[in-house]
Design a protein around this nucleic acid. Structure first.
Lengths: 334, 334
DNA sequence: CTGTTAGCGCATTCAC
DNA sequence: GTGAATGCGCTAACAG
């Protein structure tokens, strides 16, 4: 591969001049600029990003730590971020944190060693304190799908409490009194928040909170299935199940059908996330929707604005999910 | 951030020595090694990957071009690749090609400028010739989910023809005579291959190929829905529909239900890919399964073996999908 | 407008 | 074993 030096020799100018036309910095006489450009073309010159990074102390690279790469959920957020960043000639390096503190931290470390200009962090295991500390070290990063009051301006998140409140309220509004809840893992913030929202809604509706109606899930379909089986046998009075995410709702639908009951006539089911597939379940799943792509999008914009000083706006307001009414909930049976 | 120089000063040794203990290259007296290590710890020294790359002419970075980042399909392949590579202390930069030739080529170019040590390419628009040429230029890359005879040793792919043959045969074996086929876009290799497999199966079963039973889809759920509606109204004799991928099958299921028909009693439906969600449809989708994660996994292993000379085995044999029998197909109605 | 020079942080000969 | 010197390819003052 040709270097800047070869170009300068072929064009009969100095290194600096070539650098100038490459980066469009400083003034270059049109004529010499042409010569340089011709030389670059002739040599099929392509700038060496690595060398540029070292010299300019900017890598034009953004590190993105995500819990997992598979599953429909994260791709929806990464996708718009990658698109925006790439349009701005930035590269994104992706690392999976696997929801384990150790992995998340090592991912961050290695991304910093890589001299990423900024980090987009979708973390689930690392503590708030760690991130607050990171902010104090002046590391440029934006947290996605998580809210930390001390560094709110570094966060782009959704309001899980309000969202869950809306979900359960949709059920109480229909007249449901016996509502089971399949929760997410209690280590995860969003799971905790969603459960809280559920409680709030019950309170508003004047329904006493009953711990025995809370069933522990792990956000995966299978746990939704298992817990629903348990609900159906242990709590026959239940007329509605709210699942802390869509995947568990899929499991719930399967379990209910398996027991020969119909949805929503016998049991209503509501989910959370409105994953792409949720429109294809049978019956079609009623769930809480929020623009997942917006999270990634705003994160990318934050980076462009705050790290690369581009004139682009973004906002870090918490996103409030809204209800998508499909076919899986109705009034309770008599 | 501390540099190697500061470490050398603190430890009272030369730059070279520090470099030696960092890279574990050459002999260093245990005692001085300790001193250096202490200095590194004291300064919280972290090597600068960028500088290392420039000096060593290796970036320890792999570029991964993928059609799209969203959707359940690609994540399943990227995920294991990222994991394997990261365990080997490599980073992966991801770029989306959006199935457009221009985007795919520019993604490759920019990844090469980035001095990626290797590329993992999941391409849909770029021509075979382009890739053959790339191979001649000694670019290190492995192609995923695509087979190009001239550079077979650069390809990790599945056998779509055989897979589709198995799918349709499952139907003919059950006695179906009137089988509609919803195809993928004809620009995509896998779509073409799958249609060919379908034809082969019909031939084997002694069923004449009827063009009017081939309906053009685009691999998306909505087209499966639309085309199924058309099939149901135009070709009432059809007792089974084979969809070139699962997503279109989801649409088909919805359309059939909407018409008040039952699955599989009235119409059988079979898919291809066995995407994660396909086990949650109702009825559960019978489809062609293959280990998507294997593609990414073998690609990563290829890179480790061929680019980083690690002693690790991999194989580039074409993967033959197998049938996963669930609940969406049965004998045709009388 | 353009050339000279000095690093960026590190790996790697080559001497000692 | 260890150190000094050179260069990777490019950017960024600083002169002129």
């Amino acid at each position: 591969m040709a270097t800047i030096k070869q170009v300068s020799e072929l064009a009969g100018v100095s290194l600096a001049t070539v650098s100038r036309v490459i980066n469009n910095t400083g003034q270059v006489k049109p004529h010499t600029k042409e010569r340089v450009e011709k030389a670059m073309k002739d040599l099929d010159y392509r700038p060496n990003y690595i060398a540029q990074s070292l010299a300019s102390n900017k890598s034009n690279t953004i590190g993105y730590v995500v819990p997992e790469l598979h599953g429909a959920f994260f791709g929806a957020m990464i996708s718009p971020a990658e698109k925006i960043l790439r349009n701005a000639s930035k590269h994104v390096i992706i690392s999976a944190g696997h929801s384990r503190e150790e992995d998340e931290m090592s991912a961050i470390e290695s991304l910093r060693d890589r001299r990423c200009d900024a980090l987009i962090l979708h973390l689930e295991a690392v503590s708030d304190d760690y991130l607050v500390k990171l902010a104090k070290e002046k590391v440029m990063f934006i947290v996605v799908n998580r809210y930390i009051p001390e560094i709110a301006e570094h966060c782009i998140s959704i309001d899980n409490i309000k969202g869950a409140e809306i979900a359960t309220s949709a059920l109480t509004d229909l007249g449901h009194k016996y509502i089971a809840y399949i929760s997410g893992p209690k280590e995860k913030d969003d799971a905790v928040d969603r459960l809280e929202g559920h409680k709030n809604a019950l309170e508003k509706a004047g329904i006493p909170f009953d711990t025995s109606l809370i069933f522990p899930g792990n956000f995966q379909a299978h746990s939704g299935y298992e817990q629903t089986l348990k609900i159906l046998s242990d709590k026959p009075e239940v007329t509605a199940i709210v699942c802390a995410n869509d995947e568990m709702a899929y499991g719930a639908l399967g379990a209910i059908r398996e027991k020969g009951l119909s949805i929503p006539e016998d049991v209503s089911v509501i989910g959370f996330d409105d994953v792409e597939f949720s429109q294809f379940t049978y019956p079609r799943l009623t769930t809480m929707h929020y623009a997942k792509h917006t999270l990634g999008e705003q994160a990318a914009r934050w980076v462009l604005a705050n790290v690369y000083n581009q004139e682009i706006n973004y906002n870090t307001d918490r996103i409030v999910p809204h209800l998508v009414t499909r076919d899986s909930i109705s009034e309770p049976h008599a």
